[in-house]
Amino acid sequence: MKDVFHSTGFKIMVAVVFAMLCLMLYTAGAGDSATGKLFGFITIPMQRISTIVANNAAVSAESAARSKEELEAENRSLRRQVDELNKKLVNYYSAQQENAQLRKFLELKNNNQDFKPVAAAVIGRDPNDLFGQFTIDQGSQAGISVNDPVVTEAGVVGWVSSLNSSYSKVTTILSPETKISAMDRVNRETGVVGCDIRAADRSLLHLNYLSAGTAVKAGELVVTSGIGGLYPRNLIIGTVKDVKNSSYDVSLYAEVKPAVDVKSVRDVLVITAFQGQGQALGTASSGASGTASSAGGTP
């Protein structure tokens, strides 16, 4: 407050007001003379200006007189408002993303009436894991079991390898543990989709055990065959990139680019039940069912 009265601007304002008062007194003493009228013509606008200046100075002095506590309280109030708006914005975007994801999952469910799906979100991921294993926010309480297939609307992601009541670990299709009975969608030639460290490093899969005269070509879709009872039939796995000779026998294999980038997926669908689930496991020979279960999809 003291700084306002000692400022140069305030002193100039006082001087202007004093000069105006002197002119007003002189004008009053001049009566109706021509000189008085002339001074009145000059001083009246200046009086108006001086009034405006005085009013503005009063407002400025009032603002300067506001306490530090009042300013801090106002600042805290504004910050609370900003925080509330940010929370609403986050909730809006989260709801928007969730709705978009649920619409895609609903379409998948409508196309596969036998599916019993559980929607889940990825909540944990090891960035150093070459095979892209991750954790989802649903477990046995949601009806999920070990070996349940995990997918998105785009295709196969992997399978549930372990779980507790609230969370599940998902082993992806890039893991050497994963084996999926599959077929070429065009020629219906069957094989087993798997992966190894070198292929996983390139984010590729192998459709193994193709015959020497295979008709599989680059650009064709590879889908699940349903054999083994661990994956529903006709889920997209990926697209053939190339066909090569196997290093271990006379057969051929196809390099397959996965339909889903398992290392960046955020929302998934766990299929807890489907038509034909586990049927082959009940009729498998001794030892074969154990291999199928541990592999998460061996035919």
Results as ranks from 00 to 15, higher is better:
residue 113 Q to Y: 10
residue 102 L to F: 07
residue 89 L to K: 08
residue 184 D to M: 00
residue 2 K to S: 14
residue 103 R to F: 07
residue 92 Y to G: 08
residue 260 V to E: 01
residue 155 G to N: 01
residue 81 Q to Y: 03
residue 284 A to Y: 08
residue 208 N to G: 03
residue 142 A to E: 15
residue 252 L to K: 00
residue 216 V to Q: 04
residue 242 D to F: 01
residue 129 D to Y: 01
residue 36 G to M: 02
residue 251 S to A: 03
residue 66 R to P: 13
residue 146 V to A: 09
residue 164 N to W: 01
residue 225 S to Y: 01
residue 81 Q to T: 15
residue 53 V to Q: 09
residue 151 V to D: 04
residue 268 V to H: 02
residue 204 L to A: 06
residue 218 A to E: 14
residue 112 N to H: 06
residue 272 T to W: 10
residue 203 S to R: 15
residue 269 L to Q: 04
residue 290 G to Q: 07
residue 88 K to Y: 12
residue 117 P to M: 07
residue 174 L to E: 00
residue 64 A to I: 14
residue 118 V to W: 05
residue 266 R to F: 10
residue 234 N to H: 07
residue 183 M to H: 10
residue 185 R to P: 13
residue 141 Q to Y: 11
residue 56 N to A: 15
residue 244 K to A: 00
residue 180 I to K: 02
residue 190 T to Y: 05
residue 9 G to L: 09
residue 236 I to Y: 12
residue 33 S to N: 08
residue 168 S to H: 01
residue 171 T to M: 07
residue 197 I to N: 08
residue 96 Q to F: 09
residue 32 D to G: 11
residue 128 N to E: 00
residue 156 V to F: 04
residue 90 V to N: 12
residue 14 V to K: 14
residue 257 K to V: 07
residue 179 K to E: 13
residue 271 I to S: 08
residue 68 K to G: 14
residue 20 M to P: 11
residue 105 F to D: 12
residue 66 R to L: 14
residue 161 S to K: 01
residue 281 L to A: 09
residue 43 T to K: 08
residue 93 Y to C: 06
residue 225 S to N: 03
residue 16 V to C: 06
residue 260 V to C: 02
residue 23 L to R: 02
residue 74 E to V: 11
residue 138 Q to M: 11
residue 94 S to C: 11
residue 78 L to H: 08
residue 182 A to L: 06
residue 153 E to D: 09
residue 246 S to Q: 06
residue 270 V to R: 03
residue 244 K to M: 03
residue 269 L to S: 07
residue 259 A to S: 11
residue 89 L to Q: 07
residue 294 S to N: 10
residue 41 F to D: 15
residue 42 I to V: 15
residue 247 S to K: 09
residue 67 S to R: 02
residue 146 V to K: 12
residue 291 T to W: 12
residue 59 V to E: 04
residue 17 V to E: 07
residue 154 A to L: 11
residue 95 A to M: 08
residue 296 G to A: 05
residue 196 D to Q: 03
residue 167 Y to S: 14
residue 234 N to Y: 05
residue 230 L to R: 04
residue 257 K to Y: 03
residue 58 A to W: 08
residue 205 L to I: 06
residue 128 N to P: 14
residue 17 V to L: 10
residue 225 S to H: 00
residue 272 T to C: 07
residue 127 P to F: 06
residue 115 F to L: 04
residue 254 A to L: 03
residue 124 G to A: 11
residue 115 F to P: 02
residue 176 P to C: 03
residue 55 N to M: 14
residue 243 V to G: 04
residue 264 S to W: 04
residue 33 S to I: 04
residue 24 M to C: 13
residue 298 T to R: 12
residue 95 A to I: 10
residue 186 V to W: 01
residue 192 V to G: 06
residue 19 A to Y: 08
residue 194 G to L: 01
